[in-house]
Design a protein around this nucleic acid. Structure first.
Lengths: 226, 226
DNA sequence: TTCATAGTTCGATCATAAACGAAGCATTTA
DNA sequence: TAAATGCTTCGTTTATGATCGAACTATGAA
């Protein structure tokens, strides 16, 4: 009767408000404890524990024990990508899409998506690298060109250091606010990290919003022109 | 409190087994009546009507009245894409992924995804067009090259006829079975239609499976070599 | 007109699962 | 050692929503 995999199970996992809040919080890429997740979800610790167990069993999140703390994070980029795409659907047909508060524009501007830069800034970064042929795309599977390797080295990212055997170096990830692709994968993570290290941008505490400094904004546009 | 759009609502819509079955059936791209959907979901017509109203309000499906029949179809390619990606998550972590029955390999081989070709065949088609530079990609936004326009004309597809002002001509769509991109968009639809018109392949009744004829298989690989 | 088919709406039932209190386990601190 | 913290497990309550029967609307056929 069932053809293909079990969609309903995952849907119901995402479908609960408390769980959806937790997942959204985890989209920041930070690993959060059960207590922190209970706080963002607005339910007690017992309830949270139950939710976390279900999401772990469903493969949405993974757990890392450290002392008496349990740190939870999204199971992978594919999970983050699906969450962002669902958010995209909801945003598109604006309807009951939680009237855009003051923080919303900032989210569209620049935000963390699991571990890379999303929003208009993320799209700009991606487009710039593509336009100058530093990365070349065949769909969502991307690779860095020779010129790109050199450019990235100048930017402070040594590809040899970050390329892992299995994980794709860079992939594209669809953006819900801009409906465009931005850079995910190991390279996407490295780029975001470099932005922070250079102090061009910093993450707002307890939020997915990324804010650029005055000079960082300028440098960013110089380095990644459209 | 809520940052970003309402994920939980869409998740819960997808999360109900009856609705998930209906959505999966609609992934075939066919417009189905309420009665047909009731049949695939295994619930009564009343229940189905309720589900359909909710999914319509949620923007997942759209309705077209024709006489006393109501035809339902997915609201758009973005919805289809999300569904396929969720299926991909479920398939990946194999778990309770409904032990792969005999039909499963066929689904991986070639299937209809909303209105274009997915599965290994779909990936092959996409890769071939990219490798020969008939389409060029910058992420998920793709465009047809001059050489591609000519090639497609020879294949029986006149781009001028199918390009609409607003809809993107071709986009990539992530595949749950192959975890690769395949061709969606207007061009993807046209290509699938051409395969049917040439009788290289046909759709299995009441299924998303696409089967290639003996000669069709041969011609397809000749026309779209890897 | 009458009858049949397709679908919706209403109301009631019922089952699932979300939520929390209480208790238990594990780890760290005192 | 004892006490506190972080989290899980168990058992119960409760609320949401899926389901279906019955009644109603609309289109088509006889």
């Amino acid at each position: 009767m069932n053809e293909g995999p079990n969609i309903a199970l995952l849907g119901s996992l995402i479908g609960d408000p408390a769980r959806a809040n937790m997942l959204t919080a985890l989209l920041s890429g930070k690993a959060l404890t059960a207590s922190e997740l209970a706080s963002v979800a607005g339910v007690t610790l017992q309830t949270t524990s139950s939710h976390l167990a279900k999401m772990e069993a469903g493969g949405l999140i993974s757990r890392r024990r450290q002392g008496r703390h349990h740190y939870f994070s999204l199971a992978g980029e594919d999970v983050a990508s699906v969450l962002e795409q669902i958010a995209g659907l909801a945003a598109r047909q604006g309807h009951q899409a939680t009237r855009t508060g003051p923080r919303d524009p900032a989210l569209r501007q620049a935000r963390v998506c699991y571990n890379h830069l999303a929003g208009e800034r993320g799209v700009q970064l991606f487009d710039s690298l593509l336009a100058r042929q530093f990365v070349a795309g065949d769909g969502e599977q991307l690779h860095v060109t020779a010129a790109g390797t050199q450019f990235l080295a100048g930017f402070g990212i040594a590809l040899a250091d970050i390329s892992k055997p299995r994980r794709p170096l860079c992939k594209s990830c669809l953006d819900w606010s801009a409906r465009r692709s931005h850079m995910a994968g190991t390279l996407g993570t490295a780029l975001l990290g470099r932005l922070f290290a250079l102090k061009w941008a910093r993450r707002q505490p307890d939020s997915r919003i990324v804010t650029f400094t005055r000079t960082g904004d300028q440098r960013f546009t110089e380095t990644f022109p459209v």
